[in-house]
Design a protein around this nucleic acid. Structure first.
Ligand SMILES: [Mn+2]
Ligand SMILES: [Mn+2]
Ligand SMILES: [Mn+2]
Ligand SMILES: [Mn+2]
Lengths: 219, 219
DNA sequence: CGAATTCATTAGTCAAAGCTAATAATAATT
DNA sequence: AATTATTATTAGCTTTGACTAATGAATTCG
């Protein structure tokens, strides 16, 4: 059984690998908000437990076992977020910090019940896929809104950044997953875009925001 | 902010005091399944934090602050148990171990939401009172079923022992809180009792079981 | 009462998970 | 190629919360 601390390392390794491919000690220590020597020694411990492939000065890689265990924690995290939003009526901007704690609860029946009550959801409230019972996860190949063209109509599928500031920013603009968005124009100057959606017309969104929104093209 | 470990000590101190009045190091260490020197040193630390009154070789007592904080953790524990039974459809025999973990979650809004969704319950699934938002708790003065007399009709109000074996024992006999029980006879020999309830007639219950059932007399 | 038993504390050790300071390896720049 | 900068590791220290062994205090029993 892994400790809460070890679980957080596994999760971070999994998430960084998913975004950046390679995982180095610097990245991992920034992600966990720990100093590098702390991370080095824990990574060695995880290597002892066959959860991480470790060679000095080489990039860090989860083993298959490590990936599986990381995936299962992320499964609990995302199921929890879904439960908090769907069943407990909390806002999508409020659930991450709670899920960060509940993901460590040891109780298979608790999470199975959640899954059942939610009807076996495939994605969390931020559009991230929920790993299956073996910890396997597949991302659909969404496009960044910033990579779309004027004239296209797209559906908001996921948010990359899940900071509560960003989610509140979206709340203030009545933007939520599933929303249909028509791209009216893209400013060549700063790559900000002008969009129509819901009852809103000619709203402007910065490129910084668009890079954090994943969409599905209509078709 | 208290650590998970400190919280478990406070809870244990609160619960033992509630049952036995006095709390000594031996009892506390048994309750927490720790060795006595471990407990002595933690109790000193809690005294530093003004949560416990401590004098060597004297019984342990929570301060007002300590009682309040203990009460608030027990509040979270019992709210959680209620939520797990009422909203998540888990059995009353399955919820304690999960609540034992969730009681340590740091998130006021999470527990406020629970409370709201449950309609501000006053007791947990085992009939124990849920402390208020100041950690205050009052036990109603129920009777033990073992202290009742033949001929009386009583309502099952709470269970003292919340071990899953005992609760499964009650499940098997279709006994649940709120049940009306008619006491037909009491065996002088072993103090076992014969009762009628629901669709069941002339069921026998040992004195050991009756001592763990709290009832309200009709009237 | 005095001895034995039980209860509690002290002293010293350990593992987990963090830190700083110093050093070594790798990568990037001149 | 040599220097500098970045990245990672080693060594050694700290805190938290456990433990055992030894000792001291309080209680109980003959
Ligand atoms: Mn999250
Ligand atoms: Mn976490
Ligand atoms: Mn309980
Ligand atoms: Mn607990």
């Amino acid at each position: 059984m892994n400790s809460l601390t070890e679980e957080n390392y596994l999760k971070a390794l999994f998430n960084i690998a998913n975004i950046a491919g390679e995982v180095n000690v610097t990245e991992l220590s920034k992600n966990l908000d720990l100093k590098m020597p702390t991370v080095t020694s824990m990574v060695k411990k995880l290597a002892e437990k066959k959860l991480v492939h470790y060679e000095s000065y080489k990039p860090l890689r989860l083993t298959e076992k490590g990936k599986r265990e990381a995936g299962l924690i992320i499964r609990k995290h995302r199921l929890t977020e879904m439960f908090l939003v769907d069943k407990m009526k909390l806002g999508w901007e409020d659930v991450h910090d709670i899920a960060e704690q509940i993901e460590h609860i040891k109780s298979p029946v608790f999470f199975e019940k959640m899954d059942e009550l939610l009807g076996y959801p495939k994605v969390d409230p931020h559009g991230s896929p929920i790993p299956d019972k073996n910890g396997k996860v597949v991302w659909k190949d969404y496009n960044k809104l910033s990579d779309c063209n004027a004239g296209e109509t797209v559906k908001l599928a996921a948010v990359i950044n899940t900071s509560s500031e960003f989610l509140k920013f979206l709340n203030a603009r009545e933007m939520h997953l599933g929303l249909r968005i028509k791209i009216k124009a893209i400013e060549p100057f700063d790559k900000s875009i002008v969009i129509n959606y819901g009852k809103r017309h000619a709203e402007t969104l910065s490129n910084v925001a668009c890079e954090r929104l994943l969409v599905e093209k209509e078709g």
